[in-house]
């Protein structure tokens, strides 16, 4: 058997695997959503754990949610906090921290800020605090 034939076979098997995975993913769509939701829950907890003073975060989050009650669901907050295109679920605490700091700075640079009790906060930190408030409520 020549090297060319080997490559051809490998390519064929590879293509078959990709196609199979795609078909499986299509069939298991609802299951994938559930998995993602489980991942989200984990992500939310990990985000809240970034706060060394969760009570402070919850206090600010509570105030933010009073003025933005429509964001008072974890799913909505996560969708806004962790936009697609970045590997939020794969990130460890240090990476999450860095990604959020970048997002905060970008918020300020782009004017994505909110006033909470008169304090100018980035929407990212306000939403993180809101997430902490929801977790505090649940606890």
């Amino acid at each position: 058997m020549t090297a060319d034939r080997l490559l051809t076979r490998r390519r064929f098997l590879g293509a078959l695997t990709v196609a199979g995975t795609w078909l499986l993913a299509r069939r298991l769509g609802p299951l994938r959503t559930l998995g993602q939701m489980a991942g989200q829950e984990g992500l939310a907890s990990r985000l809240v754990q970034l706060f060394r003073s969760p009570a402070s975060a919850a206090c600010i989050g509570q105030a933010y949610l009073q003025q933005a009650p429509h964001e008072g669901q974890e799913r909505r907050l996560l969708a806004r906090l962790c936009p697609a295109g970045r590997r939020w679920h794969m990130a460890d605490a240090s990476q999450l921290h860095r990604m959020l700091r970048e997002q905060q700075a970008d918020d300020f640079a782009q004017g994505r800020v909110v006033l909470v009790h008169g304090w100018t906060l980035s929407v990212t930190e306000a939403r993180l605090c809101a997430l902490a408030a929801l977790h505090a409520r649940a606890a």
């Binding site: 970034l50 706060f51 060394r52 003073s53 009570a55 402070s56 975060a57 206090c59 600010i60 105030a63 605490a93 240090s94 921290h97 959020l100 700091r101 905060q104 009790h117 304090w119 906060l121 930190e125 993180l128 605090c129």
Partner: peptide, 21 residues
């Protein structure tokens, strides 16, 4: 509220792993 803002700012703006201050 001011102390809470400071705590949140330092939590997110500072380094990880420090004791709450």
């Amino acid at each position: 509220f001011m102390a809470h803002v400071w705590n949140v700012f330092t939590d997110l703006g500072g380094a990880l792993g420090h004791e709450p201050r």
